[in-house]
Every structure is written in C-alpha cells, then in structure tokens.
C-alpha cells in the first residue's frame, strides 16, 4: 500500500515500501494480488472461507495472513486465529465513524492481537493520535492527502486521562508512579 505511515517501537515514519495489498474479491477463491504480491488483505468473509479450506487440509497457509474488518464486523470472530494473523486492517468509511477505535481496543486488549493493526479509509492527520492510542500501528492516509504531512499529527498533543491500549494505565495510576506518595487504598469510602 502507498501513502502509509508505520510505527516501529514508538517512532512513526512514512513507509518506503509496503508489501500489503487490499484484495477486493467477491468470488470466494481469492486470486493473488494484481502485482502478484503474497501479502494480501482479505475481507473477513473471503478470509473466513479461505481459512476454512486451509483448516480442512489441516495445513497452515504459508503466506502471511491479512484480514480487513468493516466497522460492523465483530473482532471476536477472529479469536481462533488471532496468533496467526499478521495484519488486521480496520476501515474508517468516514473519519467521523468511530467504531474502529473500539474494534482496535478489543483486538489488542481483549483478544491479544500482536500483529500489525492498520487504519484504512478516511484516515487523516488530526485523528492519528487517537488511533495510535487505541492500538493502531500503521495508517494508510487517504489518497489525496500527504502521508508526510499527516506524520505531523503524530508528533502533536497526545495526553489523556483515561487508559488506552498504548497507555494501559489511567493517569490516576501514572501520577502515583511519577512519584506521589504511596497509595493508601483501603476498602470502603
């Protein structure tokens, strides 16, 4: 994919080359990407068919697995395969549609997904910080916008009070660790 920002150990950079390709197929048997790339991201339904076929042959597919979830897909459907999936792409049909933030939280915090979590669709500079907090690790910036420019979005303000995937402790626990006196946490009021 082009126009992509990736995070590596916390540092964000525009990706020079990215092997992944979104495969839009309704035909069941997904064909290899146009460029012949083995790094294919399949919509959940296609991907599920493919993985069932693979499961029947009781063999793990050799190629890396990438899955695309639409906002109304349930991330829990991926639970059985979560350790074998290399990349999950979550779609923002509009940047105002915030369902993928919750999907990302569930994938990371509940299902323990450790692979690459990619934001695709209406992905813009001013939402990248929130996405990063929720566990996204790469951002396919909308085609008409520059990824170089969007990168600035990740350099900006990212303080939060609540907890997030990137920041698993809420500020009231972080404050304590930052050197306030120890907690006297007795039951009751």
């Amino acid at each position: 994919m082009k126009n992509l920002i990736t995070l590596h150990s916390g540092a964000a950079a525009v990706a020079v080359k990215d092997p992944w390709e979104l495969v839009d197929t309704q035909e069941g048997e997904a064909a290899p990407g146009a460029s012949g790339s083995a790094y294919r991201i399949l919509p959940l339904s296609d991907w599920r068919q493919l993985s069932e076929v693979a499961a029947k042959r009781s063999e793990a597919t050799a190629e890396p697995m990438g899955v695309l979830l639409h906002p109304d897909d349930d991330p829990a459907d991926l639970a059985p395969w979560i350790d074998r999936i290399a990349l999950i792409a979550l779609e923002f049909p509009s940047f105002r549609d915030g369902r993928a933030y919750t999907q990302a939280f569930v994938l990371r915090s509940r299902l323990g997904f450790r692979g690459e979590l990619r934001a695709i669709g209406d992905v813009l500079r001013d939402q990248l910080v929130a996405m990063r907090h929720c566990g996204f690790s790469s951002f396919a910036v909308r085609g008409d916008r520059s990824a170089e420019d969007a990168l600035k979005g990740l350099a900006g303000f990212d303080l939060i009070y609540a907890r997030s995937v990137a920041c698993p402790e809420p500020l009231f626990r972080r404050r304590l660790r930052a050197g306030e006196p120890g907690e006297s946490d007795q039951p009751g009021t």
């Binding site: 105002r96 549609d97 915030g98 933030y101 996405m131 939060i160 609540a162």
Partner: peptide, 12 residues
Amino acid sequence: QWSTVNPEFLYL
C-alpha cells in the same frame, strides 16, 4: 477528566 479526550470515544 476520564471523558476528556478519551481516544476511543471521540467519534460516537
């Protein structure tokens, strides 16, 4: 405090 810029819930 909790709800201010809580990143998961800014686009409800």
